[in-house]
Design a protein around this nucleic acid. Structure first.
Lengths: 354, 354
DNA sequence: CTGAAAGCGCTTACAG
DNA sequence: CTGAAAGCGCTTACAG
């Protein structure tokens, strides 16, 4: 009906049968050719591709997935704190989200992303619904109900890999916290500081904090120094935790000449409190954080930190999940497959001269 | 076969036929009941829900979508610079991604997220492939090939809404840049600054920069002051643009007592250059940015800024797209529907007393 | 190497 | 209010 109406196109769909007719082959041959089945002859493949292009054909993925059972999709769930504004999410989490999606894409998978917080919007049945082949969980350790929900799901067979889980039952990838903390502490000592304290926790759900403290304590012991832990208070924002820990040190008359804070957001709070109290960083107190978030570079003075290889982290999460999906569970993951390498970002906040 | 093997469950699928048998109704009734069709009687619905729960049934979405033609999914494409590291993406973009996903979820849509940069990974045929009902584009204005690709797609009928497009042909949502720039400039004048310059551009592809300059110039004119534009150089990082503009002002002997930078990342570069040159902010130069990214709060001194309502931005993008999908194009979008409200974040960098 | 046919698991007219 | 049946558009044994 070549009337002049300007109604939308795509009111009817081009199917593989149309392409078959256009190319003069059967529908099953079209399917094989477009799927790259090597059994199809080169000349036929060409003919099919050209017909498909002429008709502007695209495979209906719902039909393909229904039939094949594969989704070529990974669900990525970002676990947030219930009260948390999306714009205030830890930038670390966002960076990880970006690299996870990139790694999935590089391996031919699309990513279905959701941000979940309260119990009412927890939903992880992506496999049952045939929406995804597996699940990558990232986000705050502090939302315990969410992690409990996902632990149960994981234990009942849902394929998943986590970053930040407080539970060891779930498959995980983490930064090489121990090595990173050693690196940070050694860096402080090498820079000439002689009494670095650690602001952190050995009891936090956040296992990584303990791992980081342990790395710090180990290097201190090797250097014949006594480790000093300033414990953060639970239930506060990271920045506020850093501020209060700094305040505590100030009240004690600064019994240290440097601080290793177990994450950048804590370090930024510490920095602010020290600066506002007129204490020079790094002149009086050297300071190094952990995570390498962008804001650490913008601080004044720029904050030294330990940064995980974000691209590697995304790739390792995806590869671990794909291994699980493909049933390669014979070989237990080695430490190297679970621990993301870290590097030192040496900036002004640890330059003893100033 | 109740043998003791520990092979995975879910080797066979529970279908709506199984639920039907369990509930003692027909398969079509199961489908209606679970879909919430009001025609089903309450007692039947209950029976079906319980049977479904007993069997741990979940609808196969591929089958449902194939049949119904609806996907209840929105594709969200983040356009990056080709050379750009995922962890260094503008935090503004990540925040927007978060609120877009949240808004979609609140309206019953899932989000298929991808990060696209080079020409080889541009792919926007989500509708043709029946993967999504429409497309939300966010990201850097600077990747022209990507925007060109999507403009062509949009002009040929793909439903989409953009944030950051250099092209006006595509449907867009933007910050209320004009109002925000007025707010920033008025704030500087109210704080006692008498000669604010603007670091920005009136020729950038980034329309918002011109809009922001115009708002600044308007308030200056109203106050009987002469606007002064320090133009940024193209092809540099935002931070470096800010640094060079600051350097230019310094070389001219600081012919201003305040700066309105058209985005926070430029402002942070400006701040750094001024600080390193020993120029006190805000003592000698007041400074305000635009965007309200997190790093602006962490700067020293904390940077004043203009922040769009991120939650509103996400909601407006999603609502505009859903209106397009549902064919509500009769009423052209009003300014209020396209312009995201902004607010002033007054911080230390504009406190003239210091 | 290619084709005819079955079937993935739903939703939705169509009847009653 | 419920059921029997068709059909969405593919992939994949099965034949040849």
């Amino acid at each position: 009906m070549a009337d002049g109406t300007t109604t939308k196109p795509r009111t009817f769909r081009v199917t593989s049968f149309d392409v078959a007719a256009e190319a003069g082959v059967s529908q099953s041959t079209v399917s094989r050719a477009l799927a790259g089945d090597p059994v199809v002859s080169e000349v036929t493949r060409q003919r099919v591709f050209e017909a498909a292009r002429r008709l502007n054909y695209a495979v209906d993925e719902n039909a393909a997935r229904l039939r094949s059972g594969r989704t070529a999709t990974l669900a990525v769930v970002v676990i947030c704190r219930p009260d948390e504004d999306r714009k205030d999410l830890n930038p670390f989490t966002y960076a990880l989200l970006g690299t996870v999606c990139a790694a999935a894409s590089a391996r031919g998978y699309e990513t279905l992303v959701s941000f979940q917080d309260g119990p009412e919007n927890l939903s992880g049945r992506y496999e049952d619904r045939r929406r995804a082949d597996g699940l990558i969980l990232i986000g705050t350790t502090q939302n315990l109900p969410a992690w409990t929900y996902y632990r149960d799901l994981g234990l009942s067979g849902t394929r998943m890999v986590c970053w930040g889980s407080p539970f060891d039952e779930l498959d995980w990838i983490r930064s090489d916290n121990h090595a990173g903390a050693r690196l940070a502490t050694r860096h402080l000592l090498d820079a000439g500081f002689t009494a670095p304290a650690c602001i952190g926790s050995v009891t936090s759900l956040q296992h990584q904090f303990k791992e980081r403290y342990d790395g710090y304590a180990e290097v201190m012991a090797e250097a014949g120094l006594t480790p000093r832990l300033v414990a953060i208070e639970e239930g506060l924002s990271r920045e506020e935790q850093g501020r209060r820990a700094a305040r505590q040190l100030i009240d004690q008359g600064l019994p240290c000449d440097a601080v290793f804070a177990v994450c950048d957001e804590i370090a930024l709070g510490t920095l602010r409190e020290l600066t506002e109290a007129g204490i020079d960083v790094p002149g009086r107190i050297g300071l190094i954080g952990f995570d390498g978030i962008r804001a650490s570079a913008h601080a004044m003075p720029p904050l030294s930190s330990i940064q995980p290889d974000f691209a590697a982290a995304g790739a390792m999460l995806v590869d671990k999940l794909l291994a699980t999906i493909n049933g390669d569970e014979s070989a237990e993951a080695t430490a190297a497959e679970r621990r993301v390498p870290v590097r030192l970002l040496a900036r002004q906040s640890t330059r003893k001269g100033g």
